[in-house]
Design a protein around this nucleic acid. Structure first.
Length: 556
RNA sequence: UGACCCAUGGUGUAAUUGGCAACACAGCAGGUUUUGGUCCUGUCGUUCUAGGUUCGAGUCCUAGUGGGUCAACCA
């Protein structure tokens, strides 16, 4: 069976639910980010899963901000999250919700639990609660406040709401089971005093619900059918179901899948924040960051990210995806859409000694061999050109298909040239390469039969435009920067994750100079125009290199 | 000395729900090529262990082993 139509385990569940007419065959998912940081490629997997599932089964997806902790959350993050989801190509239409929209309802739920003798106000400190909690192997002990009357609990909880009590002095706990082998069931705190203004509700509230008392209830209020989250919430599911049952509300179903891990990458928001705050990168959208905004600035397309999300699959086992898979998805789309351009990153001058001084020529060049509609452009050619320094070798091995004294090579879109010699300085550093060209080998009309093994990119010296090029590489040089005990992940930062070329030589007539435009620099890689570009100087970010089989041969 | 979850090539993910283990990435070899790109072909290599059920087990059962999560008034 081809894997194209194979279902993942969540699709199996959804199809079964549809078959049995659960929820009247309705599918409603949600993407629930906490606005406390920027979205990363792991979130992209979740977004594609949630929106993709709904799309596939004729359902919808809500966007819901899980904003129950005002101490960490900011509007800036809300905006970036919305931008990133839209950029990925998904639409929540008018279904933009916030857990904070439900604070009144959540408060009522809490009072309901109190009235049902299923919640109580605890005066214990955080330390005292921890001490009575027990350990995974030893049951906990009841709090001395566990048996307060409904009236007293109601009174105290309202006082908490009204700001009478200070942070840390009182909390509301669900009365579940202090002996449960599941620590989360040992009378979890569901409301805490927090006298912090909220980015949406301002200073209306002095108390805020905890995740476990907000997430499932929000799902239920929205009548979410399939609430998909990551594996670390598995132990929360009994509590999720407990609240739904005790409150008698719509039974959303929580389903857990394994989060994305990428080799040579870290994915925790906390650690990404460290990289930003301590200046290891230039910001959340630094092209080396695994954030969606970073990948966007790096030059990845939404199509390639979605393709990647499909390829990584959905399952429950912990995984580490090869960075090469992301690169594959990146190249695969860029290959189809990126116009080709000739840019010499590390120039060396090439003089065609038999090309008449002062002669000019314009040679046609196709913009994208993968897309006939992309058209073509004219390339100025002349006696003096720039070629890549790595394309010349004084003493070259047999497998070197490039320029070396006595050898032929094709200049892309132009002529075959023959290397006659070179000029070096006193240190042996090559200054100029001298060649002759065969006029009868002009590209497209060559019937000469003259052979050449390789093809080089080049730029005419007098028409070359200086551009700035940023060569990005992986941010870490360890496959798992977190797996080394006693060592901080910062130690594994790749010192060569960014190399800047101030004066690369670009051909003069590229089709567009818009920020975000994608190019394949012939033979070197895919590049995108960065927002740092000024009108005179374009700045290009390298998204990913081309596959390089010469490099492989060299490494042998 | 707990509960819950997981275990299929180097990396991921599938397997018509008990019936010939496949697809992709990576690797390797070759072909095409005016990009050492793309494309095409071939190739390498997989069911954690031990029992059990069954005509038949990657799939079901038991035990073990290994990994993950849980003792924030974070999500």
């Amino acid at each position: 069976m081809a894997m194209g139509d194979a279902l993942n385990f969540i699709e199996h569940i959804v199809e079964e639910d549809i078959r049995t007419d659960k929820n009247d065959g309705r599918v409603l998912t949600r993407f629930p980010p906490e606005p406390n940081g920027y979205l990363h490629i792991g979130h992209a997997k979740s977004i594609c899963l949630n929106f993709g599932l709904a799309e596939k089964y004729g359902g919808l997806t809500n966007l819901r901000f899980d904003d129950t902790n005002p101490a960490a959350e900011e509007t800036e993050y809300v905006e970036s999250i919305k931008e990133d989801i839209q950029w990925l190509g998904f639409d929540w239409e008018d279904r933009e919700f916030y857990a904070s929209d439900y604070f009144d309802q959540l408060y009522e739920f809490a009072e309901q639990l109190i009235r049902d003798r299923l919640a109580y106000v605890d005066d214990s400190t955080s330390e005292e609660i921890a001490a009575l909690k027990g350990t995974p192997t030893k049951p906990g002990t009841h709090s001395p406040y566990r048996e307060r009357s409904v009236e007293e609990n109601l009174k105290l909880f309202r006082e908490m709401r009204d700001g009478i009590h200070e942070e840390g002095t009182k909390s509301l706990r669900a009365k579940v089971d202090m002996a449960s082998p599941n620590m989360l069931m040992r009378d979890p705190i569901i409301y805490r005093v927090k006298k912090v203004p909220h980015h949406r509700t301002g200073d209306k509230w002095n108390i805020y619900p905890m995740y476990d008392f907000a997430h499932g209830q929000s799902d239920s209020i929205e009548k979410i059918t399939h609430s998909i989250c990551t594996l670390e919430f598995e132990n929360h599911r009994p509590l999720y179901d407990w609240f739904i049952e005790k409150l008698g509300i719509f039974p959303s179903r929580q389903i857990e899948f394994a989060r994305l891990n990428l080799s040579y990458t870290i994915m925790s928001k906390r650690r990404l924040l460290i990289l930003v705050n301590e200046g290891y990168v230039t910001g959340w959208d630094d092209p080396r960051m695994p954030t969606i905004s970073g990948l966007r600035r790096r030059g990845y397309t939404p199509e390639s990210i979605r393709d990647f999300a499909t390829r990584v699959g959905i399952a429950k086992r912990n995984n580490v995806i090869d960075l090469s898979l992301l690169e594959f998805s990146g190249r695969s789309h860029l290959n189809k859409i990126a116009n080709r351009a000739m840019v010499v990153l590390d120039p060396i001058k090439l003089v065609i000694t038999n090309y008449p001084e002062g002669q000019k020529e314009e040679l046609p060049a196709i913009n994208n061999p993968e897309d006939e509609t992309a058209g073509s452009r004219m390339l100025p050619f002349g006696r003096e050109l720039f070629i890549e320094r790595t394309d010349f070798m004084e003493d070259a091995p047999k497998k070197f298909y490039r320029l070396s004294p006595g050898r032929n090579v094709r200049l892309k879109h132009a002529y075959i040239i023959h290397c006659e010699g070179f000029v070096a300085d006193s240190n042996g550093f090559v200054q100029e390469v001298h060649c002759t060209y065969y006029p009868e080998t002009k590209s497209g009309q060559d019937k000469s039969g003259i052979k050449s093994k390789g093809t080089l990119h080049w730029v005419a010296c007098d028409k070359a435009r200086d551009v700035k090029v940023r060569l990005y590489d992986r941010l870490f040089n360890e496959e798992n920067p977190l797996a080394h005990e006693g060592k901080d992940f910062i130690e594994f930062l790749n010192p060569e994750s960014l190399k800047v070329i101030e004066h690369a030589k670009m051909e003069p007539n590229i089709p567009t100079e818009e920020v975000g435009a994608k190019y394949q620099f012939l033979r070197t890689g895919y590049f995108t125009i960065d927002k740092d570009s000024a009108s005179e100087t374009l700045v290009f970010n390298r998204t990913v290199t081309l596959k390089d089989s010469w490099k492989k041969i060299q490494n042998k």
